[in-house]
Amino acid sequence: MDDDWKRLRVSGLCKQFARGSVILSNIDLTVDRGAFMCILGPSGSGKSTLVDLIAGFEQPTGGTIAFDDSPVRGPGPDRVVIFQDIGNALFPWLTVQENAEFGLRNFVRNRRERRTRALEALELVGLDKDTHKFPSELSGGMKQRVQIARGLVMDPHVLIMDEPFAALDAITRRRMQYELKDLWQRTHKTVIFVTHDISEALILATDVTVLSSGPGARILDTFRPGLPDERDPADPAFIAAYRRVEALIGHVQDAGDAGRGEAR
């Protein structure tokens, strides 16, 4: 894989399942290298399907996904997914260290190199003291940190995060958001972050894409919130951005209902 890519481009992406239900219709999306793209959408808007397509778990019915001009095929460590389900995403028989090394086993021969690389990633998420623990001994927030480290180890082009904090309690979730933001500012890894939480998106994103509610979800708007690095939910600019997204989603729900009525 070419290492100096400039953008991930999703164009004209459609997904229709065999029974005929259209999940996504004509999705266009450009994620610049180093961006933090939040994809916002209500439940059932096909966010997870979009993740599955970009990650390569599913094949699109139409359209392409490409790093610059080289299309992606199938799942691979250049697009690592961080999953929401904290209970099943980690390998429970492996220690934190072994979980972090998991992907490297197939790519890096040298055992010592695997160790140091995993340790570096664990250090980034603040888990270098818990390397010998098993997932069952970790809290939800720690489990997600292991998952993030396990992904970062692969040095992916894009880190795809599928509602990674949705299963955490509110306080841990907020802390993880700021930690992730800090991590992104240090590494400038490209992130695609899927969520249904507007304030979460506005705290994290450099770019926001809003999806309509499904079926047949499409993109309503893509914009840069243009907020300062230190995000404050009480900042008037933050509130304005929040309102903008809310208006979009609210407005579309009506239009979506009307559209559905016509289509079927």
């Binding site: 990650a55 460590p77 099943n88 995403a89 980690l90 390998f91 992904g151």
Partner: peptide, 20 residues
């Protein structure tokens, strides 16, 4: 999900079977 987690880390097919 466990198999998906392995796949996204580049561990596919037979390797995912024996390792996961």
């Amino acid at each position: 999900l466990r198999i998906k987690a392995a796949n996204t880390l580049g561990v596919l097919g037979a390797s995912a079977f024996f390792r996961v």
